[in-house]
């Protein structure tokens, strides 16, 4: 690995982190304005045109807010708990390919930060590290609401993690590889959703539970637990939890795209667009690579918007309903999917 390779890596990390961090204020705006339109209100529309500068105002307020560390909390763990949430949420994206290989100035650049051979395992492992942030925050706050929120949250996350892990075995049987980049390559002809619709459904629902979003946001059910595990947090510490949640949503949307919707494979219709623009002359041209990145971004944006849409459409589950859905519906469904996929592969229908 020479200096130029290292520079390329650094640029890729900068671009991806920049995109993730820029997604947060945009999503906050979309969430607030979108929820307002769904509920027939106007939403925040005073700061800037159409309220577009509202997230900037929010950030300024987050920075200048007082950030007290209460007397009763754990001195060391309380301030660093937000980092335990933010770091895993950010580094999952390292394994996700956001574009095809690109050839420029005689160099081949893979548009993926780390082409990990065990990509799926990495994603699952790092994804479950997010529990520590929640658990440490809840425990170190030394507050009844926080600790109850953290307990509920971790219990919910580990329950749905089984369904999540089991749902990925179906695609794994079909693709026969752990590497996310190879999985995207294998979806050139037909996207994974057509081979594994049930797995997609389970993965999609579990994704909501993993990111603690409505209808699975019991950890912070405000009617009963105030704000759940981050009750005692304020100012920038709260903002970091907030950022971690949104980055998590984007990451799960990107994983949905990668595993089931063809990743950076062009959306139907984009092929003719590439032909019209004259950039499809050879497979690794810059124009085609950018078009593939655009395809990936579009798909990911679509799933991210579904996350927001669902939040303002569905009511929250009761805790027993949540546990029932996870343990009695999703897990058996995932087992059925594994068995059915294996048998269908054996008799040669898949």
């Amino acid at each position: 690995m020479d200096f130029i390779d290292f520079t390329i890596l650094a640029i890729k990390i900068m671009v991806v982190m920049g995109a993730l961090l820029n997604a947060v204020p945009i999503l906050v705006w979309v969430e607030r304005r979108g929820s307002a339109f769904i509920q027939d209100r106007l939403g925040p529309n005073r700061v800037g045109p159409m309220g577009l500068l509202q997230p900037v105002a929010d950030v300024i307020k987050f920075i200048f807010k007082e950030d007290p560390i209460p007397c009763h909390v754990h001195r060391f763990l309380f301030p660093i708990a937000p980092l335990f949430s933010l770091i895993p949420a950010s580094i999952i994206f390292a394994a996700i390919p956001f574009g095809d290989t690109l050839e420029i100035w005689g160099r081949t650049i893979t548009l993926q930060i780390a082409d990990i051979h065990i990509g799926i395992l990495y994603v699952l492992a790092v994804g479950s590290l997010g529990i520590y942030g929640v658990l440490i925050a809840g425990w170190s706050s030394n507050n009844k609401y926080s600790i109850l929120g953290a307990l509920r949250s971790s219990s919910q996350m580990i329950s749905y993690e089984i369904a999540l892990g089991a749902s990925l075995i179906g695609p794994l049987l079909v693709y026969g590889t752990f590497s996310l980049n190879e999985i995207v390559h294998l979806q050139a002809q037909s996207w994974g959703i057509f081979l594994q619709p049930l797995a997609f459904l389970i993965f999609f629902v579990s994704g909501f539970a993993e990111s603690n979003r409505l209808p699975f946001d019991l950890p912070e059910g405000e009617a009963e637990l105030v704000a759940g595990f981050h009750t005692e947090y304020g100012s920038m510490k709260f903002a970091l939890f907030f950022m971690a949640e949104y980055i998590h949503i984007v990451t799960i949307a990107a994983l949905n795209t990668t595993l089931f919707w063809g990743g950076w494979q062009l959306i139907p219709g984009m092929v003719s667009l590439a032909n019209v623009l004259g950039i499809s002359t050879y497979p690794h041209s810059v124009g085609l690579a950018l078009l593939k990145v655009a395809a990936f971004t579009l798909k990911t944006t679509f799933f991210t918007l579904i996350f927001i849409w669902v939040r303002w459409t569905l009511p929250r589950f009761r805790y027993d309903q949540l546990m029932m859905l996870g343990w009695k519906i999703l897990i058996p469904a995932a087992f059925i999917n594994i068995g059915a996929t294996a048998v269908l592969l054996y008799i040669g229908w898949l």
């Binding site: 890596l9 990390i13 982190m17 980092l83 770091i87 580094i91 994206f93 930060i113 780390a114």
Partner: peptide, 14 residues
């Protein structure tokens, strides 16, 4: 290289 990339990204986030 992958390990380095992941560590770099983690350090960046931290």
């Amino acid at each position: 290289e992958n390990v380095l990339a992941v560590i770099l990204m983690g350090v960046f986030a931290a």
